[in-house]
Write a protein that binds this DNA or RNA. Structure first.
Lengths: 197, 197
DNA sequence: GCACAATCTTTACAGTGTCAAGTTAATAGT
DNA sequence: ACTATTAACTTGACACTGTAAAGATTGTGC
């Protein structure tokens, strides 16, 4: 495969990787197919040999990012299955993943609509499904009343996801500072007044 | 002012109101200036007499929605100033505002970047500033140690904002169901394991 | 070595945001 | 009351976007 060959070699993965790169640099809103194709050294219609349309490419990018995210969450869980520490560790990983990659957050949650299902059905978004399953196992193990499960899961997921949102919306986001504090914030659950355990 | 006059009359507010309408119907991503102008019965360049560019129009829409949001939050607070109940009530209003208008959520939080400041500076987003102030007054009143304020505020805002996020991402979002449960979820703060008070 | 399929290019089209120039209507000044 | 000025709108144009169709180039299986 020569460097200047007519065929790119592996345009599909090149588009995905360069796409992720550009999303990190300039965000999702200004990402154009033609620019991305040019950045891959290819004509503007070349991507259509590998993707049905722009949204299809974005879905592929989404999958890539989501897979990475899931592996980060799973890693945070290894050795701590079915323990509160594991859940907490996963929560920290959840927040830090987006603190380190804020553009992934916007990209992911602006494109999707119905992601979660708190009933028996699986959630469309795998990280949510992983979080839900992890909590279900834990809740079963420590004998929490069945009718509370739904609200407990909603509460946990809201807190963790919300903390990620708030973190990346904070001015002068400081990764190290969040690294130091996430665990403390999630574990202590500083509440007061009307909202507390 | 005749109905078929060359001049629209009040194109500026017409664009804003019709814009909000279209955002609610089709979301922000597919909203086009030209379509919106056409929906207002006006040529595609007419908006440029009232707005510098598309983003300027979106900012005006943003302001409209944010003002409404702030008034809803303030209303939830009336008569309950500096009380935990007031804070809780405002939290419920926060969540329900976006459950009733999910598109407002996407529109607002996809466009903005640095919104919150947990130090002395005011937040760029007025609802956050209102929430922060409300909590600060309360924290001062009930004599919570000063060095805990920051984390307490982050925690509360994360939980409330996260619950709104999760609510609108839930499949088959049921407004009535959320109306019934928001208060309970926010007030009881169902936590377990590593994350609890 | 040749047909075929996959990959890429070129060309074209409708839609977008934006600008410049021209048109219409309201308003202010005399 | 008439005119000059200005604000609001239209028209036309441009560069850019996503997408489709048709053609060119290359790798692959027989």
């Amino acid at each position: 495969m020569s460097v200047t060959s007519y065929h790119h070699g592996d345009l599909r993965t090149a588009m995905i990787e360069k796409g992720i790169e550009m999303i990190n640099e300039q965000g999702i809103n200004t990402l154009s197919l033609r620019q991305l194709a040019a950045a891959c050294g290819v004509s503007h219609a070349a991507p259509y040999s590998h993707f049905a349309n722009k949204d299809d490419l974005l879905s592929a990018i989404q999958k890539h990012i989501t897979d990475k995210f899931v592996s980060v969450l799973s890693e945070a869980l290894t050795g701590l299955n079915d323990t509160p520490e594991g859940l907490l560790n996963m929560g920290c990983a959840y927040v830090m993943f987006f603190v380190r990659n804020p553009q992934y957050f916007h990209f992911t949650f602006n494109r999707m609509n119905l992601l979660i299902d708190f009933d028996e059905n699986p959630s469309e978004y795998e990280p949510f499904e992983l979080y839900k399953d992890t909590m279900l196992h834990l809740l079963e193990k420590i004998n929490i009343a069945n009718e509370l499960w739904r609200k407990i899961i909603i509460t946990h997921l809201s807190f963790v996801h919300g903390l990620a949102s708030i973190a990346i919306m904070t001015s002068n986001v400081n990764i190290e500072e969040w690294e130091e504090n996430v665990y403390d914030i999630l574990s202590k659950s500083y509440f007061l007044g009307g909202m507390q355990c």
